[in-house]
Design a protein around this nucleic acid. Sequence first.
DNA 1: AACTTTCTCAACCGCGCGCAG
DNA 2: GCTGCGCGCGGTTGAGAAAGT
Length: 219
Amino acid sequence: MANEKKDGAKPCATNKRKGLWSPDEDERLYSHITNYGVGTWSSVSELAGLKRSGKSCRLRWMNYLRPDLRKEPISKQEEDLIVSLQKVLGNSWSAIAARMPGRTDNEIKNYWNSRIKKKLRRMGADRDQSPEMSQTAVKSAHCNTEDANLDVTTSHNNSANEKPHSHFQSFACQLLTDEPNCEQAAHYSSLSKNNEMNLLVEDYVEFLMSLPDDLHADI
DNA sequence: AACTTTCTCAACCGCGCGCAG
DNA sequence: GCTGCGCGCGGTTGAGAAAGT
């Protein structure tokens, strides 16, 4: 892919090769990991006969060679999901990627920085013409992660007796359409490593993915 | 056609965390 | 508690491609 169009790899001062990976290097790394597993990344490079750092090998495997990666472009539905998850989790790209099977943190981060961010900025600039999207831009721009004090866990527990999805529907609606509530978003972010919070997010994602495409278009 | 600007994305860098000794 | 190592993460860079003039 990238190696077909460019190959700037060169050895550096520490005798480690840097830059783009050649097809031969890919083949060596892939066959080593599929045959022997990773072990430690620092040893993979040597055992596979590569002059790369373990870090570089790990990155190449995670972002390009892993067999479970999805190669097709990010869909509109996935883009909506990224936007929603970014509001909940902030720039925790790995956490977002963990909820999007087949996508890597690097891919999502790149997509966010090159497309969505720009889109939101544009929408923000056009807020008079497009109020609903400008709110999204304002949410992203003004969130302050220091000031969160909302008890999300309690809110989640209280929703236990509600109808299935009703809590997540309101959660989604709040995230996607209501007035900005940056404190809440920040608090969600700060709790993202909490198991209960993970369940909440998983359910929300499941709900979001279940929405019909036309509704996604509206969002 | 030639040149410039913008976009895309693979890969690097530096930092922080967890763990073993 | 300190140190070194390995790993994972988010931010950033830079080369090539694509679009615009």
